[in-house]
Design a protein around this nucleic acid. Structure first.
Lengths: 144, 144
DNA sequence: CTATTTTCGGACAATTTTGTCCGGTATCGA
DNA sequence: TCGATACCGGACAAAATTGTCCGAAAATAG
C-alpha cells in the first residue's frame, strides 16, 4: 500500500505529535527508537517532512523535532502520504495503464475508483493529532 | 497498490480470457503486444499463473496460453493477485507493524480495516471473465 | 571561544523489484 | 526423422527502494 519510507514517516510524525502536545521536542534517536525504525533512513524522511513544513526541526543541543500548534491543528495524514509517496495511490490506474480514465477505462476502473476514493477521503479527514491521541489513551501502538 | 508483475499478470490473464472464450490460444508474443508489456518478464508471470492452474500452457507450434472452460468459470481476480503478490495487501498492517491486530492495533488499524475489507471483497467477487466481457463490449481498454 | 550535541546532506552500499538473454525441452507438421 | 515453433527455467543485468556512513553546519552551554 505505502512504501516503507511512508510507513516510517507516518509512525514518526505521530510520535512527534504525541510529544509536541506536551511542548516537548524529540531527537532523531528517540524517534527511531520509539517507532523501531532505522535511524539514518528515518533522518532522511524527517528532512522531507520538515522541508514541506509538516514539522519543525532544530539543530544543536536541546535540538530535535517538534510540531507547532498550527501544524498540530492542520497536518492531515494525506499531507504526509503526499509528501513521501506522492498522489499516485489515488490518481494512478490500478492496472498501471497510462491513459486510463472515465472515457477510456481499464476493466477495473470503476471498481478501483470506489476504493481509491474511500482511501483518499480517509487520509484527507484523518489528522495526525487524532492518531497521536489514540496513542496517548493507550488504545494503540506504534512499535513492532 | 499492486506490483508491476501483478499489473501485467492481471492484464495478461484478461487478454487470455478474451481469446479463450472464442476457443483460441494466444502466444506470449501476442499477449505482451496486446497489453504493452515486456515479453520476457511477462513470460515469467505467465509461468506462475500456469503453475497455479489459473491458465493452461502448451508448447510447440500452435502452442500458447488458454483458459479451460472450468478456469473461465472459476478464476477470480483474487486468485491472480494472491498468486503474484500474496495476501499481504489485505492481511498486513498499513503502517508496517509486525504485531498489529485488533487487540494491539496501530493508530490506523480500524481505518485501514474498512478499506482492506472492501478491496478484499471486490477482488473476491470479480471474475476474470467479467473483466474480459467488459473489454469485448468495447467498454474498456488494456493498453497504454 | 571552544567543546559538545544534533540535524543536514551527499556519497555509498545492500536489497528487492523489474527486466533481459539464451540454451533446453516439448510439440507439431512436413 | 527433421526442422521450426513456442514455452521453460536458470543466470544475468538494470533500476528502484531501502539502508548506512561520515563530514559539515548550526546551536547551546560552559
Amino acid at each position: 500500500m505505502f512504501s516503507k519510507a511512508c510507513e516510517y514517516g507516518i509512525r514518526a510524525i505521530v510520535h512527534i505529535s504525541l510529544k509536541s502536545e506536551k511542548g516537548m521536542k524529540v531527537s532523531l534517536k528517540e524517534i527511531s527508537h520509539a517507532i523501531n525504525s532505522p535511524e539514518a533512513f528515518t533522518a532522511k524522511i524527517l528532512q522531507q517532512l520538515s522541508k514541506n513544513d509538516l514539522i519543525q526541526s532544530f539543530k544543536g543541543p536541546t535540538g530535535g523535532f517538534i510540531m507547532s500548534p498550527k501544524q498540530l491543528k492542520q497536518v492531515m495524514l494525506r499531507d504526509v502520504v503526499n509528501t513521501i509517496d506522492g498522489d499516485s495511490i489515488y490518481t494512478g490506474c490500478g492496472l498501471g495503464l497510462e491513459h486510463c480514465d472515465a472515457t477510456n477505462p481499464c476493466p477495473l476502473h470503476n471498481e478501483f475508483m470506489e476504493i481509491r476514493e474511500q482511501l483518499r477521503s480517509m487520509l484527507q479527514s484523518t489528522s495526525i493529532r487524532q492518531l497521536s491521541d489514540s496513542l496517548r489513551q493507550g488504545e494503540a501502538i506504534l512499535k513492532r
